[in-house]
């Protein structure tokens, strides 16, 4: 594989103004299992798929509580998520200590956004390799934010990160209107699990072992449902395996839709490869440059 000259560190722009190291960090999120989040007027639900490294190993924790009114779901490097969530916990405690006030969700996410940005502008540190969905309920209501290693945070009605998350996003987009209108927490969780289910690969289905759910909202503190506790929500699903993989599926539209999205992803990947290829050309140019020049730069 050819090395791209502009992707060695996060302090070098490519000729098109891109930061490859930062973009690669965004790729790291996709290596992690999926997490989805969605909001109604009064509640936020996070749902995540846990992985275990081996049959006898325990499942990786995917949802972390920050404070009574806030929590995060992660996809990507779990240790990086621990660093960020510890930082958020500190912020939450300071807010209580100094202002006698729960930390607002927007302040919380912006604080880690600015922290992440620092790592993208100086040599010797790497960008964080984790994406977060931050769920919070504060005096301005229920909020869901997506955090990226680039230092960008955006507020969403619904979001999905991690492996095959596009399918989850598609589900959320298609059901956005019903999700926003719902008054029932149960319905919100079911939508969350449906979205999560759509991200599953062929041989996997949602079980109480690999599924994590959390809820926070009006009059209810942040609560994580794991293991046996999550079964009550799985019982409410019509199926625990991905619609694409179900044999004799009558929902043909779904199938097409999913295929389309897969195609889309492929095209973008292709586009990216072309881009990289052109950069590789540049790299070749560099090799073709007069020897003297190279000597100078090498030194």
């Amino acid at each position: 594989m050819f090395r791209n000259n502009y992707d060695n560190d996060s302090v070098t722009y490519s000729p098109t103004g891109r930061l490859f190291q930062v973009e690669y960090a965004l790729e790291a999120i996709k290596q992690g299992s999926a997490a989805v989040g969605l909001v109604s007027k009064s509640h936020v639900v996070l749902a995540a798929l846990k992985r275990n490294a081996e049959e006898l190993g325990s499942y990786q924790k995917k949802i972390i509580k920050i404070d009574d009114h806030m929590g995060v779901a992660l996809a990507g490097l779990a240790p990086d998520a621990r660093v960020l969530s510890n930082f958020l916990r500190k912020q939450a405690m300071s807010s209580k200590m100094i202002y006698n006030r729960p930390l607002s969700t927007s302040k919380a996410v912006l604080s880690i956004a600015d922290k992440a940005q620092e790592n993208t502008q100086s040599y010797g540190s790497r960008p964080y390799g984790v994406g977060l969905l931050i769920a919070g309920y504060d005096e301005t209501g229920a909020h869901l934010y997506e955090f990226q290693p680039s230092g960008s945070v955006l507020e969403y009605y619904g979001a999905a990160i991690g492996a095959r998350s596009q399918a989850g996003r598609t589900y959320l987009e298609r059901n956005l209107d019903t999700i926003l209108e719902t008054d029932s927490v149960e319905e919100l969780i079911v939508h969350g699990l449906n979205a999560l289910r759509d991200t599953l690969s062929q041989d996997v289905e949602l079980t109480f072992k690999n599924t994590s759910v959390s809820v926070v909202g009006k009059d209810s503190d942040f609560k994580i449902y794991d293991d046996e506790e999550v079964q009550q929500w799985l019982d409410k699903l019509d199926s625990v395996s991905n619609a694409r993989n179900r044999a004799g599926d009558d929902d043909a539209d779904d199938n097409n839709e999913n295929q389309e999205t897969t195609e889309e992803t492929t095209t973008t990947t292709e586009a990216a490869t072309t881009e990289e290829a052109s950069n590789d050309d540049n790299a070749n140019e560099a090799t073709d440059a007069p020897a003297e020049d190279r000597m100078e730069t090498d030194e």
Partner: peptide, 10 residues
């Protein structure tokens, strides 16, 4: 997220 008296006091 208005700053209110209890926050100022604390």
């Amino acid at each position: 997220h208005h700053l209110r008296a209890p926050h100022v006091h604390e």
